[in-house]
């Protein structure tokens, strides 16, 4: 019994040492290999469809619904908003590389001058304030529509998140990783409890999706929401499910979480926006 205990304790220590010391690149390999072994019949690209990659019945219904995507109108509105000039005559295109087209796959990125993670949504709002405009709300509304339009110009481009080899960037990555694996809320769940450890199982009638594929298709138009929500809105929903305090959109913890989670998804194609029930 004592030996067994010692073995378990050593095991836990080893795993945590391993987790702390692995490089982001090693983490990503381990993460992606886990899902490849768990779902040997799926190709890597299949994961971008979330639960619909796992459940054929749900997929058939979803595909039928997507003959006329429920987000079409909102996506068009996003394009108009993106192209509308600011009061000073400039526009969003002036703030971004490649005029804002086909860049979703590079976000979030680490800003070495300010030592912080910049998500696409944060960059959109900074573009506005730099041009004398008010900020937009982060989780839904006009900003989510603009972000959805920008995602749509990146279709099939491959996620390519960069973690520069400096202490601050690695610290942001580690903080995101820590968040992903830590239990929280009255119900005591980590993100990994549901989306890694119990992936593919059912909580009541909800299949738990793989975290490989999570950030590829946001913003998501959820039927339950009736409009687009950003990735941070989804993080907040998942926090609420376990009776944890949901955080503000673009809070440091959520930006770091997005940095970690999106880096884990490097190599997957962008397929956003998408619809979900």
């Amino acid at each position: 019994m004592k030996n067994l205990l010692r073995a378990i304790v050593t095991g836990v220590l080893l795993t945590s040492t391993f987790i702390v010391n692995a490089t982001p690149e090693q983490d990503k390999e381990t993460f992606q290999r886990f899902y490849a072994e768990r779902f040997p019949n799926l190709a890597k690209e299949d994961f971008v469809n979330g639960v619909y990659a796992l459940d054929q019945d749900a997929r058939d219904q979803w595909e039928a619904m997507n003959d006329f995507p429920p987000y079409e109108e909102n996506l068009e509105a996003g394009e108009e908003l993106f192209n509308a000039p600011f009061a000073n005559g400039k526009n969003y295109a002036s703030c971004f590389e490649n005029s804002g087209e086909n860049i979703r796959q590079n976000y979030p990125m680490f800003d070495g001058k300010r030592n912080m993670v910049i998500t696409l949504e944060l960059a959109i709002n900074e573009c506005r304030t730099n041009n004398g405009e008010e900020t937009l709300a982060y989780k839904k509304g006009a900003l989510a529509k603009i972000s959805a339009y920008m995602a749509s110009t990146s279709e099939d481009s491959v996620l390519n998140i960069v973690i520069p080899n400096n202490e601050k960037a690695l610290a942001a990555y580690q903080a995101g990783k820590q968040y992903f694996y830590s239990k929280r809320g009255q119900l005591n769940f980590s993100c990994a409890n549901c989306h890694v450890q119990n992936v593919g199982r059912k909580a009541r009638s909800e299949t738990l999706s793989p975290a490989l594929g999570h950030p590829t298709h946001f913003p998501v138009y959820r039927m339950a929401w009736g409009n687009f929500g950003t990735l941070h809105r989804r993080f907040a929903s998942c926090n609420k499910q376990v009776r944890a305090q949901p955080l503000a959109g673009q809070s440091e913890a959520y930006r770091n979480l997005e940095y970690f989670l999106t880096y884990m998804n490097n190599g997957l194609p962008i397929n956003g926006p998408a619809s979900r029930k």
Binding site: V12, Q186, L187, N188, F189, N193, C194, Q197, N198
Partner: peptide, 18 residues
């Protein structure tokens, strides 16, 4: 449940006053 299995997903109903 985490007393027996530290990574158990089962909520600690008593300990967390659920």
């Amino acid at each position: 449940a985490t007393a027996k299995n530290s990574i158990s997903i089962m909520p600690p109903f008593g300990k967390h006053h659920i």
